[in-house]
Design a binder for these strands. Structure first.
Length: 342
DNA sequence: AAACCGTGGGC
DNA sequence: TGCCCAAGGTT
């Protein structure tokens, strides 16, 4: 009874959180939760998950919805490509006529990689396949004092092997979730609570005395900062928005207020949103400039005083329109717009 | 393989 | 403030 696998599962049974996507065996619901949870915290996902499943309770409901409605429910969650791929994959499931039941089959769907395939297969279908997410990487790296950064494919393979050795074949879904839960609550990136850890007795990093030393750091690229200017343009009770082209890499198909890149000296240097704009808007409408800051990974958007002077036109694939605030809720938007209207 | 995609919380 | 980094996948 003192083997690590049993200790881990017993700990999970005792202290595991009661999350909305636990307590269901519906593979579709579990799938949706796993997509939303990609690189996204549990507390952020909660409200989105509830609304999304309420509106799209089945793959059929999701598949037949227009993509803009899917994106509207995803608005503010980030990584919008996830929503597009989920929508596309739902169409494939419906076309196929049945839900994929193995990790190998699941991984063929767009947006489902090794992690998500293993998570859905183990949780919904009891397939004894180990997940390797950021939590498991950290837990296992510490448990075996893994001496290389979890970057190369070979390193990940090794970590997954060890994770698999901790799997209870009778309860693979709970075993996987236990490892992730442990990483999220106890074996945290900083200040792990080794006192509360069910694996402490066999943890190599703990024995060495400095569990935080693992996993070994992955080299990170330098980030470039760019400054932008964003402007809220209003006329009466309407706001001017632009819909970014579906071909954009960043925020494809998302409605936003106009923002432009600034040169280092603060002058407008480059037009964003795939748009050109300027005098053509200023047809007597009120230009209201708002102060606000928002940061994408390496892009700072700053709302501040500015002059719009260049004449312009809409770029290929982009679209412009005036909307009342109550209409904007049903549009695909980003957090920039959501914060602005808050 | 490395770079890219959004956002928010924690320190 | 600035930086880390989160239930990753795609290219």
């Amino acid at each position: 009874m003192a083997d690590p696998s049993s200790e881990l599962l017993a700990w999970f049974d005792r202290t595991g959180r009661d999350l909305p996507w636990r307590g269901t065996r519906d593979p579709y619901a579990i799938w949706v939760s796993e997509i939303m949870l990609q690189q996204t915290r549990v507390e952020t996902v909660r409200p989105y998950y509830r609304r999304f499943l309420e509106r799209f309770p089945t793959p059929e409901a999701l598949a037949k919805a227009p993509i803009d409605e899917v994106l509207a429910l995803w608005s503010g969650l980030g990584y919008y490509r996830r929503a597009r791929l989920l929508h596309r994959a739902a169409g494939e499931v419906v076309a196929k006529g049945r839900f994929p039941t193995t990790a190998a089959e699941l991984e063929e769907l767009p947006g489902i990689g090794p992690y998500t395939a293993a998570a859905v297969a183990s949780i919904a279908f009891d397939e004894a396949v180990a997940v390797l997410d950021g939590n498991v990487e950290r837990v296992i790296s510490r448990w075996i004092a893994f001496a290389e950064p979890p970057r190369a494919a070979a390193a990940k393979l090794r970590l997954r092997e060890v994770a698999a050795s901790l799997l209870d074949p009778e309860r693979p879904g709970d075993s996987n979730q236990a490892l992730m839960e442990l990483g999220a609550l106890v074996c945290r990136p900083r200040s792990p609570s080794c006192d509360a850890c069910p694996l402490v007795a066999s943890c190599a990093a703990y024995r060495e005395g400095d569990p935080e030393a693992y996993p070994l750091p992955v080299e990170k690229r330098a980030t470039e900062r760019r400054r932008h200017l964003a402007v809220l343009v209003e006329r009466k009770d309407e706001i001017l928005l632009f819909r970014r082209s579906d071909d954009e890499d960043l925020l494809a198909g998302i409605w936003e207020i106009p923002w432009v890149r600034l040169r280092d000296d603060g002058a407008t240097a480059e037009l964003h949103l795939g748009t050109r704009y300027g005098g053509s808007w200023s047809l007597g409408e009120t230009l209201r400039l708002v102060r606000h800051g928002i940061t994408y990974r390496d892009i700072e958007v700053e709302l501040r005083r500015g002059e719009l002077s260049e004449a312009g036109e809409l770029a290929e694939g982009a679209e412009a329109g005036w909307f009342r605030r109550d209409e904007i809720e049903s549009l695909p938007t980003s957090s920039l717009l959501e914060k602005l209207l808050r």
